[in-house]
Design a protein around this nucleic acid. Structure first.
Lengths: 149, 149
DNA sequence: AAAATTTATTTGTTTAAACAAGTATTGTTT
DNA sequence: AAACAATACTTGTTTAAACAAATAAATTTT
């Protein structure tokens, strides 16, 4: 949909500005669709992402550092997101024996079975873009890559 | 820069997923550059956006509703962002005489002169995308518009 | 071996998003 | 005019980003 109409702005200072706002606005659009997919499972996007990283490691544990490395958002406050997963009994934490600074985080059975129930989320999230063809997606990825020098 | 390298993920489930993550990642990239531009003025992005809306109305006032309408993020908690602008003496609030439910918000002289000092921020923010040509930007905007049905 | 540095994580604080609920005022019905 | 609904906003709560500072353990330097 046309950006000008959507945000009730008749024109932009520059095509640069328009693009920046368009990326922000489109990201919000996708993010809120994704939140909708997760809301019935009472998980936030960040909690879901971390749970999936933990499943990727299972049956091994993952340290806070490892999780941080795999997160898109390097500034995430993993410690306190993990706290919330532990309250929900979806993850557990213990200290490493070999290095007692390290927190070893592991997904619980409850966490695994929740993710199992959520398998459709992936397919549904792909559907957000299902009206774009392969050429569109490739071009979009190429242009976005170009932005980040 | 190549997304796979940047987020240390060898491949994506689908081109859909890759695009969604690419938009999220690129938006974070731009947003953090923008935050850097604002940080020396001790303003957050939301505070800056609201201040600019208020300047657009000056010397008239703007109600919370009007500001909300002009914000990209309709869920923004304008009341409390305005509270912070008032603490910084960049805006002031009084109740409307004609409708006492309505809060009339106005940018202060201090707010105006701060924005004046910040005029370069616009040019600098355009620079974030200065290595893209007109064709790139147009195509990008077109594809992003297509996403939002 | 003690001191200094680095690493891994936690804690504290401010800001803001998301959502629900509350309050005051205005407008509309009956 | 009283009852009601609608509105404009405020307040409360949880979650999380951003950033700085603190803590504890491990490693390196002296």
């Amino acid at each position: 949909m046309n950006l000008e109409q959507e945000i009730k702005q008749s024109k932009f200072r520059s095509e640069f500005q328009k693009t920046i706002i368009n990326i922000y606005y489109t990201n919000s659009y996708i993010f809120s669709k994704f939140q909708d997919l997760l809301s019935e499972y009472k998980l936030t996007v960040q909690q879901y992402n971390i749970l999936r990283i933990l499943r990727g490691q299972f049956p091994e544990t993952a340290s806070i550092g490892t999780i941080k490395e795999r997160m898109l958002d390097k500034n995430s406050d993993i410690t306190r997101i993990i706290d919330r997963l532990i309250i929900k009994q979806l993850a557990e934490r213990k200290n490493s024996i070999s290095d007692r600074r390290v927190a070893e985080i592991k997904i619980t059975k409850k966490g695994l079975s929740l993710l199992k129930k959520m398998d459709l989320v992936d397919l549904k999230s792909d559907n957000i873009l299902s009206h774009l063809n392969e050429t569109d997606l490739k071009k979009l990825n190429e242009l976005l890559d170009k932005i980040r020098i």
